[in-house]
Design a protein around this nucleic acid. Sequence first.
DNA 1: CGGTGGGACGATAGCGTCCCACCGGTGCTCTATT
Length: 480
Amino acid sequence: MDEQKIYQELRHRFGFAKFRDGQLATIKAIMAGHNTLAVLPTGGGKSLLYQLPGYLMAGTVLIVSPLISLMQDQVDRLHRRGEKGAVMLTGQIYGADRQRLLQNLANYKFIFASPEFLTNKEVVAALQQVQISLLTIDEAHCISQWGPDFRPEYLMLKQLRQFLRYPVTLMLTATATKAVRCDIIKKVGLTDDQVVEVQRSVNRPNIFLAVDQCQNGEEKRAQLLKMINQLGGAGIIYFSSRRLADEMTRWLNTQTKIEVATYHAGMSSADRFRIQQQFMSDQVKLICATSAFGMGIDKENIRFVIHYHIPDSLENYVQEIGRAGRDGKQSVAVILYTPGDEQLPRQLLTVDLPPADLMQAVQRGKVDERTLGPDYRLFSFYLKHHFTPDQVKRAFTRRKKRRLAQLQMMTNYVQSSECRRDFILRYFDEPTITQKRCCDHELADWLAAGILPKQIYASPKLSSFDWHSRLASLLNLVKN
DNA sequence: CGGTGGGACGATAGCGTCCCACCGGTGCTCTATT
């Protein structure tokens, strides 16, 4: 494909003169007919990667997306740009409407759907009548992260590709280790030599990394309060429990003048939508959230992400802090850590297997699926897809081991005395770097570089370094 | 692991205390009934 033609499309259709890092390489690979795995840092204009080739190719782009809200957002954006050929297929469309839509799929340029919806036979039959020029898997790390024990339909994408006669496939994510990249490729039914990988560093130089050791919950609260008062600007605080997210929202609203709101999956989708809108428009400055908050949050000026609890892996951590500083300005990622904090995520990642006799009954089709709880339905899925109870048991033992190892890495990160950035880069198989304003272990470098004000440099309290206030000063300096 | 809610108990009517079991996070679709 002529590079001229790609640039022409970029100018005319999208109004840009230049590509961002990694975009051109990805688009050229797709246009050359290669399956492509693009690991590009957050906020890098990922929708362009399937939209532009979509316009250059005859046929339809099918985009697999994990959340209805993400699909809605993408479709709205396309509509606003005047693209009428964008539609989403979800379980919210019933009966006659669904029939009409499925019969007219070929008229659409961009079709968005969840992996669950794409296991429906009627839907697949309708899609088989459409020329799919490009299959795009957005947030492709979900295959590896959610597929095995949360949303198993992610594991059926391999079969979907087969049903659609192996369309060129684009897998998009912001964060993936070598192991996760391999896992994604394998679960989509490809091999490494069938995929072109375009990868840019996960490093976000403008995000300062720190861990704050706290003795107990009380100290944590105090530090949190101090920190958000000093940092200012918009921020996210992550918790591992809904209850605590609610509680801290209430507490912070009494302790500060900052507008604080909660976000977690226990809230109605209307409330979640409203809170997200208010955050985007700066009516709410601070969100106390569980891991439900984040995907699709494209807010430029998030100044800090604080973790009140550690996440269960460095992958998730990097995803979550990556929401800060999209505008390129100096931002902060801090973990408040009390030894023993890793126990909560440890407990959360155990999945209870159903008793052997129940599994066998399910396998023989003697149990009504609806009577099984949501947890047991997962196993029912596996058994229906010709796994024996024994295989399921082994698979989940392996899975647990792997997740425990990931959590151990996360724990090592907070306890480590080496450069935080280097730690992350090494985890993602990237060469380590030296940079200024890096992490809490390298404050001396900031001082040497003369970035911090003299009175702080001369402070007699330097040994018991209160980096919070110094950081606040630094951020002011950077702003000016 | 750590916090919490419910139930039992004691001793005497309105409530405190203790113990133990249990729970904790992420989302889609379909279906039947009101």
